[in-house]
Simulated scan of single mutants.
Amino acid sequence: MGSRTPLFSEHERLGARIVPFGGWDMPLHYGSQLDEHHAVRQQAGVFDVSHMRPVDIQGADARAYLQRLLANDVAKLQQPGKALYSCMLNAEGGVIDDLICYDLGSNRYRAVVNAATADKDLAWMRARAEDFRASETEHASPNPSAPALEIHARDDLAMLAVQGPEARAKVAPLLPEALREPALALKPFFAVEHGDWLVGRTGYTGEDGFEIMLPATQVVDLWQALLAAGVAPCGLGARDTLRLEAGMNLYGQDMTEEVGPLESGLEWTVAFEPRERDFIGRSALEAQRASGDLRDFIGLLLTGRGVLRSHQPVLVNGQPVGEVTSGGFSPTLQRSIALARVQAGIGEQCAVEIRGKAVPAQVVKPPFVRHGKARITME
């Protein structure tokens, strides 16, 4: 038996199919993965993402520490509430995890890390904090009584993602009164905080909506209120097809500890400026860029019959040039789609080996779908 979120009894009550995921027992779907996918694209759906781990980083040295820890630069966060997507790299430039980091103001930040890597991430973050304290003594706190750097896993919080074109309108009336108007006023990739509640206009589906962190003791009430308001409960299956259509990476498939952001379509998340910022993995990424033989990260649209799956070989003229990293059937496009890592410059047409047969595919640039609409031209 895996770990269970505070909503596990709700999932059972709704008849969810429960599967193991990253050490947790989580709902795959509540009867129809397809219906849940379309609910998010067309109305609103809610996902229990309480298996993810919020981690608070605070103190006078918090910003300098995060500038060392993350490939993206938290100095871009110029006002409280702004969010930043980043990879956390090892010394070889591989991805330990990808995460969102929120600036909460007053030298406070919150990182939200993935469920399957949470324990590993937290151990890495704490070890790097000790390294930082040893090597960055010039950042000592001006207040001797205040710790210069603290890292706290917020195991007291639960997390819901409410996504879809109707999500914000359905959520706002159910929030604490002090959050309702500020939440509706949020720009994308901003958040607002009130007490132990944090509402961010972020998500993993390619649709508008909120990700809500709140006390675990209050999440059942919010979940039930959302369902009563007509928001569909959605499981891991729909979350995966939605994020694939949106061209969003999945850790452990599209990037790993062995494969870094420059070969995973995430070069936009690496801040090489200012040059003096020596983030972990920087020298390895610079060597990769200088080598000139980086692989491309592409989208694929299957034009023949079949379903794309991870690890299937990508072929050009019958020869392997890479492999699918994430693949599946797109309910919105009614076609099979994939993300793949391949040799640079393979052109606009290729094939994918499916059950021993070379099936033709079209090379496209993700995302495939955003805000309910196709973003690619299908031949």
Rank of each mutant, 00 (worst) to 15 (best):
L315V: 02
E12L: 12
S86T: 15
L285C: 08
E181Y: 11
N249H: 07
L175R: 05
D73P: 08
E257Y: 12
L174D: 11
A83D: 10
L7R: 05
Q43V: 05
L14Y: 02
G265T: 00
T202V: 11
E207L: 01
D240S: 08
A191M: 08
P331G: 07
G45F: 02
F132S: 06
R126Q: 14
R110Q: 13
K187L: 14
P367S: 07
D221K: 14
A172P: 05
A153Q: 06
A178K: 09
L250R: 11
L186D: 08
E92R: 07
M248L: 15
L333D: 00
C101G: 03
Q349G: 10
N90Q: 10
I298F: 09
M1A: 14
G105S: 04
I100G: 09
L198K: 09
S336L: 06
E258W: 11
Q58C: 10
A129L: 08
A16D: 03
L262K: 06
S106A: 15
F190C: 12
A64H: 14
L227F: 03
S283V: 07
R180C: 04
I212A: 03
A232E: 04
A161H: 04
V192L: 10
D103H: 11
V162P: 01
G292I: 07
E245T: 02
A167V: 01
S106W: 08
S9V: 11
I18G: 09
D278C: 12
F272L: 15
P274V: 11
P261D: 01
E181W: 10
V74L: 03
Q78G: 13
M1Q: 15
V192S: 08
R295A: 13
T137Y: 12
F190M: 12
Q224N: 14
A340N: 02
L262I: 00
W124K: 04
D278K: 15
D155H: 15
D131S: 10
I57K: 03
Y85M: 11
K82D: 10
V49Q: 03
E130V: 14
A140H: 12
M26G: 02
A351T: 06
A271N: 15
E323L: 06
E177F: 06
A361Y: 04
Q288D: 11
Q349S: 15
P215R: 12
K120C: 07
D98I: 02
V49K: 00
A238F: 05
C87T: 12
L262Y: 05
L266A: 07
V95F: 02
L214S: 03
L149P: 02
Q288E: 12
L70F: 02
D254A: 09
N114W: 09
L244A: 07
V49C: 01
E379S: 13
M52G: 00
P54R: 08
A140L: 12
A148L: 09
T303Q: 15
E36N: 00
L160W: 07
L7Q: 02
N72M: 04
R341P: 03
A75H: 09
R239N: 07
A127W: 13
D208R: 09
A183M: 07
A62N: 05
P144S: 08
I346P: 06
A44P: 04
A358Q: 09
L84P: 03
